[in-house]
Design a protein around this nucleic acid. Structure first.
Lengths: 232, 232
DNA sequence: CTGTCTAAGAGGCTAGTCCAGTGAGCCAGT
DNA sequence: ACTGGCTCACTGGACTAGCCTCTTAGACAG
């Protein structure tokens, strides 16, 4: 999943030590019932227990810090931040990730809102970007392609037109998972044309600045695109 | 922002070198117009240019990897992943973060959906957790407290009852920002009681497994809680 | 032209060392 | 008895030097 090369192939990637450490530390936190505010064992101690050097452990701690699980304080130690549920959520998600129904659900939630906001807030430049994406997708389909690039451009343009940095960041967060979903869907015969048609419908609603219609059109579009998953 | 102690004070936190490096590398990526798939300079080279050791640079690279900006490959180098817009989004958000309207917007989008899902999927255990949160908040308010703890518990319980790992992760992502919003709101006189009342309404809808009512009640609740921001 | 080998260069990880905050405890001065 | 200042043990922060493994391109043999 981590690195998806051009054709959906996955490059075999050796495990990185720090990644394993993150898992182990997460497991340790859970097994010892640590609560927010508690301190992790000292670096030197932890490193020895885990059988790695301090430098490597430091990388794992950086990762955990970026993930928002701990907060490392100079002179004090690594304190557990927020509710530990975050740790388990991350852990659980990492294990059986790619749960398509959930991804579609999240995508639907965000994109319907984004479409409605885009209708309300779009500038002429935003509209131009949306039209450009439609052109690209149309051309790709005429060339016998699946139109994935245009599809991605379209959804990016909508996201941009909504002018909400926070929502945009949330979208970026699940962007990779969505990409996988999208490629599968557009691989079905006749699907790209249908998808393009519903894109146009969304674009028209945004052009007319009709938030409600834009949200509904996006919802219909995602349901169309997603029913491929239900067949499994 | 990073560590907020009991009274909203912020502990002065020394800058960590790797954090600065992340910023610098992000800036470098942007300034050199790198595209996805391009390689960053070699570690030894980069470390020298930035005037840090390889070990420290390695920490910065781990952080960037966790953020999804790059993908480090053994023997090859650090390749830029995805569209670079992610990098700029993260960067932009880091600068003028806490844009309250956007946060409220994102919160509303997610929590309305979560409430609806919770109504459809809740188990009896979920319901018990929700009721427990109501009890806690009720007791806090009677003790003259603002009820922030119970409030947080309540929203956590709803999130859990929705049984959607992906949405839960998105919520965790903005949880910290929401916490700030919430504390301000509950600081207003009479607000905790109103908030508790609308919590009960949401809980009733979820108990009755009425998705639509749950979504509406949550929307009303968030609008109630959020109008404090409009006064500024 | 093709397959194999090799060496340069990339990242991965370790060990050892020193610097810089933190906080508990001691002790003098008030 | 309290306050303030000092010390020291402990914690993380960062660097250096070195060796290992992996990747890849180019030389070379078939």
């Amino acid at each position: 999943m981590e690195k998806t090369a051009r054709l959906g192939l996955e490059r075999v990637t050796r495990p990185r030590l720090y990644e394993q450490l993150v898992e182990q530390i997460l497991a340790y936190i859970e097994s010892t019932q640590m609560r927010p505010g508690d301190l992790l064992p000292a670096e030197r101690d932890l490193a020895e227990r885990l059988g790695v050097s301090r430098a490597t452990l430091a990388q794992a701690l950086v990762a955990l810090e970026v993930l928002g699980v701990i907060d490392v304080q100079h002179g004090t130690g690594a304190v557990l931040a927020r509710r530990p549920s975050v740790a388990s959520v991350i852990k659980g998600l990492r294990e059986h990730r790619s749960r398509l129904p959930e991804i579609v659900e999240a995508r639907s939630t965000l994109e319907v809102k984004l479409a409605a906001l885009a209708a309300a807030r779009r500038t002429d430049e935003d509209l131009a970007a949306i039209d450009h994406a439609l052109d690209v997708m149309s051309r790709e389909i005429n060339d016998g392609d699946r139109g994935t690039h245009g599809d991605e451009l379209f959804h990016q343009a909508i996201t941009g037109a909504a002018h909400s940095g926070v929502l945009a960041q949330l979208m970026a967060f699940i962007a990779e998972m969505i990409l996988e979903t999208r490629m599968e869907s557009l691989g079905q015969p006749g699907r790209p044309e249908q998808s393009l048609a519903s894109h146009r419908k969304i674009a028209d609603a945004i052009r007319a600045q009709d938030s409600e219609a834009a949200g509904e059109a996006m919802l219909a579009h995602i349901e169309l695109v997603s029913d491929v998953e239900l067949l499994r």
